[in-house]
Simulated scan of single mutants.
Amino acid sequence: MASLLELSGVSVSFDGFRAINNLSFQIGEPELRAIIGPNGAGKTTFMDIVTGKTRPDTGRVLWGEKSVSLLKLSESQIARAGIGRKFQKPTVFEAQTVRENLAMALKAPRGPLDVLRLRPTQASADRIAAIAAEIGLSDDLPRIAGELSHGQKQWLEIGMLLAQDPRLLLVDEPAAGMTPAERAHTTDLLKRLAERHAVVVVEHDMDFVRRLGCKVTVLHEGSVLAEGSLDHVTANRDVIDVYLGR
């Protein structure tokens, strides 16, 4: 499987602290990957680099079949290229309905006049219905987003990412604050999405990672410490010493 995203030799320092240290990483499409590691391991900085929020000091970040350098693109260009990011805290439009949230997120021209002319079409209605079914919110389309549970808001935000037709989804700690039933739904949702997309899940919860049943990358001090199945990496002495033993 060819790589969709490839980082090689990437380093970045903040005020003398090396947050990412000669990091190399690649993921194909479709693929599900979990990234784990102690606080300060570089997990958030990794996502910041991929989405253009942080520029590395050295290294390459290549995207797609044509190996386009993401370091030459702005954050908005990277998003349009097919990289979507879901932060740990849901960021939905609380005063709008679920349907309106999904409609605003649909991939479409985004100039001022385009937004003013925006009219619902059958195609967009069908797309919204399909996304709502995918994320498990079909019955909640008329509800105000602010009324949703924490887990439902997380699913809505994933739906808003899907509306942008991403090839890669970066999902930050999706299991945090969820009920057991919501966690099970989220596991199923991410595994389904990874049948068609590349999905990177940053997570601390080992039980959740185990249920994902995917390849795991362990970061430590900005580098890859170990990679493989969860059983493989959790048996690694270095991983036990720096992460699991805490």
Rank of each mutant, 00 (worst) to 15 (best):
V115H: 05
G151F: 02
A95L: 06
D231P: 07
E6R: 10
K107G: 00
E203G: 08
I49G: 07
A145Y: 02
A2D: 12
D238R: 13
M104S: 11
E203S: 06
V98C: 03
F208Y: 08
A175Y: 05
G40A: 06
S223I: 08
A198M: 00
V171I: 14
D238K: 13
A132I: 03
A34Y: 06
N236A: 06
D126A: 15
A163H: 02
R99C: 07
E195R: 12
S67D: 13
R99K: 11
L106M: 13
H220I: 07
A103M: 13
L212D: 09
Q77I: 00
Q154P: 00
E100T: 06
E173F: 08
P112C: 12
H220D: 15
E221K: 14
V239F: 09
V61N: 06
Q96C: 11
P180A: 11
S11E: 10
A226G: 12
A81R: 01
A176G: 13
R80N: 09
A125C: 08
F25I: 11
I131H: 01
L7E: 01
G52H: 03
Q122F: 02
A79I: 08
G159D: 06
G59S: 06
L102T: 02
T91G: 05
G159P: 02
I83Q: 01
M206W: 11
N39G: 13
A226K: 07
V199Y: 00
L116V: 13
K53G: 00
F93I: 06
A133L: 05
A235G: 14
D205N: 11
E221G: 05
A181Q: 13
E75F: 00
L141Y: 01
V239L: 08
G222W: 14
